[in-house]
Amino acid sequence: MAAQEGAAGTTNQAARVRYGDVDDSNFALRGRAVPLLAGLLALLVAFVAVCLYLRWSCGRRRARRDHEASSSSAAASPVPGLDADAINGLPVTLYSPPASSPARSTAAKKGGDGGEEERRRQEAAAAVECSICISALVAGEKVKALPPCGHCFHPECVDAWLRSQPSCPLCRTLLLPAAVVANGGEPPV
């Protein structure tokens, strides 16, 4: 047992390191190492500073661009809709279905087999719809025919549309000049 303790004691002594025995010359900075490390540290600080500046600059530029875009779109946006006078100035008429052409009706009278087709065409022409509320326009019903394009709609349907949009709901023809002429006024400045 004593032999084992002695052998263990020698291994413990070899594994122990005294700080006085360590040579600090391996960690010492000599010659060009000090300026090199100082230069690398300065380069790292400069890189971080440039990155922070670019982040700040891009953020300001983006904020300025968003502000300019919102202010220019508000200034350049078209009129949101027509005013009440322009809407009331549009003509209201009684709806009458489009008449079939005389050539078709005479051909239908002469040939007995074409009469069924002609009747279907007349029913299709009579079943014209208000494209806003998707209900049929009935003969004798009040409709508003828009002057530039001639499309017909129920007055209450098209009035609600024209308060928000200055165009025909079907073909998107602008109605601003037509509404001004219908009112007998001058175009807005």
Rank of each mutant, 00 (worst) to 15 (best):
R64W: 00
K109N: 13
L36P: 00
S77D: 07
A28K: 12
A182T: 09
A33F: 01
H151A: 05
A99P: 07
G111T: 15
L170V: 11
E5L: 01
A145I: 12
K142F: 03
A63M: 01
V92R: 15
T93G: 08
A7T: 10
R121L: 13
P98C: 14
N26D: 07
E156P: 06
D83L: 04
S72Q: 09
C157G: 11
A182Y: 01
V34N: 04
G111L: 12
P102N: 10
V143H: 01
R62Y: 00
R104A: 15
S73I: 00
V128R: 14
T10N: 10
V22L: 14
V17M: 07
H67R: 08
D21F: 05
V158E: 04
C171W: 00
G185S: 01
G111W: 11
G81K: 05
S70E: 06
K109A: 15
G89E: 06
A107N: 12
L52S: 08
C168N: 03
S25D: 10
R121K: 13
K110V: 15
W56T: 00
S73C: 03
V34Q: 03
C58R: 04
G9W: 00
I134T: 00
L137C: 03
A139N: 04
L175D: 09
A182S: 10
R30E: 02
L36D: 11
V48F: 12
R119T: 11
A99Q: 14
K144V: 07
G140T: 03
Y95R: 14
P102R: 07
V180Y: 10
A38P: 00
E5Q: 08
A108S: 15
S105A: 12
V34R: 09
G20I: 03
V34M: 01
L162C: 02
R16N: 04
E68S: 01
Q4N: 10
A178D: 08
C171M: 01
N88M: 12
H67C: 00
A38N: 05
R65N: 05
G89N: 08
V189T: 13
G185R: 03
Y53L: 13
V45R: 05
R121D: 07
A139P: 03
K110F: 09
E141D: 01
M1Q: 00
F153K: 04
E123C: 10
D83A: 08
V128M: 11
A178M: 01
L54W: 09
V158K: 07
L170H: 12
Q122H: 04
G114H: 15
R16K: 09
S96A: 11
S72P: 02
E5F: 02
A124F: 11
H151D: 09
R64Q: 05
A125M: 12
R172W: 02
L90I: 14
A139V: 04
D24W: 06
F27Q: 04
A7S: 05
L90Y: 03
P155W: 08
A124W: 13
R119G: 05
H154T: 03
A74F: 08
Q165G: 06
L40K: 12
C149R: 00
R61Y: 02
V92F: 09
S96I: 08
A75H: 07
I132P: 06
P147S: 02
A8M: 06
Y95E: 07
V34I: 14
K110S: 15
A76P: 02
Y95F: 15
